[in-house]
Design a protein around this nucleic acid. Structure first.
Lengths: 262, 262
DNA sequence: GGTCCTGTGTGCGAGACCGAACATACGGGA
DNA sequence: TCCCGTATGTTCGGTCTCGCACACAGGACC
């Protein structure tokens, strides 16, 4: 009995999965592979197993702000399902591992013929939008420490291991901050025994502690670690607030400052 | 010959549109209406005409960071098309105006029966993802001035008029900054004759000037002002860089600092 | 062992934005 | 007309991040 590495596929009825099987090619994604270049045509989709693919955008001089992260809970190539052929982002393999590849034409026809697959994919797309939205919020309101912790946890959830290759420089690029900022946050975490690292190898030592240090976005981010890819709108989070809390407003101007809170 | 106010609908062949027509109810959206509350079920979708709907998220104490903006180029209620019933965001009417409403069941069955509608909606969803992505980038890298200018322009493009009701307090909430920050940026714009405003009424006086003052995100944001809702991956933008330009990295660690540039 | 490259640690001045407090001005209602 | 609530203008100390510069350290290669 072969185990299906990807959760979207594993959630399908066996018979449905078997029908898709002929179109699925096992491949090994390697660290550093670029699955889609920004603006280039997408010729296939990927169902990652225990590996990690980052969705990166470009802005001005910045080549690589991460807006989304796909692991075994998702699929890389969502735009194809929406009828868009060229990649709006760059998809970079951050953690190597197994994946199932399906070429464009096969994927599209499978999608048309298989309502259950359609349902799974569309649900994931909505979850991905949630993830991107959360990133937008996080980028606006949260400090480097919290964002770094969140990133490490999300990565762990997706690769299924608390150890991975990742330099400060690289992390800085993902988070859109300076390398020094990452060094500072990371060494603080290391002092507190939450993580340990050396020359590009990072290991999470205290998952709970890191969770406490992360911004609330971590708990709000859907489609992580194997849970069903649907967007929980709000999950109350007990813990310290990230930062400032005034300025609650809307709708219609009636409420004003000071109501704050979750 | 009735003109169709919404661009998604207008782009459909006449016959296709006529088939949808019985399900479409003309409504007038009023400033301050909340179309969907965060986490609440969505019972209908809206095809806005010349009006403006903001998609807002919540984070900690912040009730209202805007991640997306829908006008006559789009549809409000995209999650329904993806099989999700509860709204992941709050949808707030920022600019009143006409819209066409369609109830959930009718929309879903129309979607199933009408490939052309499906194609239009899905294309728009991808464009919306692009918009949210751009917001994430913008939130990370750009200063208040540029973001404000972008917001004003995007609003103008959607409502089709350079004049709208909008207080600094409200704008601050949209952009996720303090009211004072908006006041400062806005009064600077007013000094430079780019806009004029008074007690909640804003008018754009110099569109080109405001464009020059806006961050590059404005030109990268798809689905604006009636253009086809597809995501142009990169559009080179001549003008001053927003801010810092080092730290270009990836893929695979080969390139490093200093390549930057578009 | 020595050299070089890459990754990490640290300090410093500048700028943007924050939180708070207070001053002014417009405009509608009593 | 006067009053008052709302919108806007301004200031101030503090914090986070930036950009830059430089020192140190592990490891690969000679």
């Amino acid at each position: 009995m072969d185990s299906i590495p990807n959760i979207l596929l594993a959630a399908l009825p066996r018979a449905t999965y078997l029908k898709l099987l002929p179109g699925l090619t096992p491949v090994t994604l390697k660290f550093g592979d670029v699955l889609y270049e920004l603006g280039a045509p997408m010729r296939e989709v990927y169902f990652p197993g225990a590996c990690l693919v980052s969705l990166l955008t470009k802005s001005d001089g910045h080549l690589a702000l991460e807006v989304g992260m796909v692991g075994r809970e998702g699929i890389v190539g969502t735009p194809l399902a929406l009828g868009v052929d060229h990649s709006p982002i760059r998809a970079l393999v951050q953690g190597g591992g197994p994946a199932l590849q399906m070429d464009r034409a096969r994927f599209l026809s499978a999608l048309k013929r298989t309502p259950l697959l359609q349902r799974a994919i569309f649900g994931y797309i909505q979850a991905l939008m949630g993830q991107i939205t959360q990133t937008a919020v996080c980028n606006r309101f949260h400090v480097v420490d919290g964002r770094l912790a969140r990133w490490l946890l999300m990565t762990r959830d997706r690769v299924g291991s608390g150890e991975f290759r990742m330099t400060h420089d690289f992390l800085a690029s993902m988070l859109g901050v300076r390398r020094e900022g990452v060094t500072e946050a990371a060494s603080d975490f290391q002092r507190r025994d939450l993580i340990e690292y050396s020359r590009g190898k990072i290991r999470i030592r205290d998952h709970r502690g890191l969770e406490a240090a992360s911004c609330t976005c971590y708990h709000r981010t859907p489609a992580g670690n194997g849970k069903l890819p649907s967007w929980r709108p709000v999950r109350p989070h007990v813990g310290t607030p990230q930062r400032r809390a005034g300025t609650a407003i809307l709708p219609g101007f009636t409420t004003r400052k000071g109501e704050g809170g979750e």
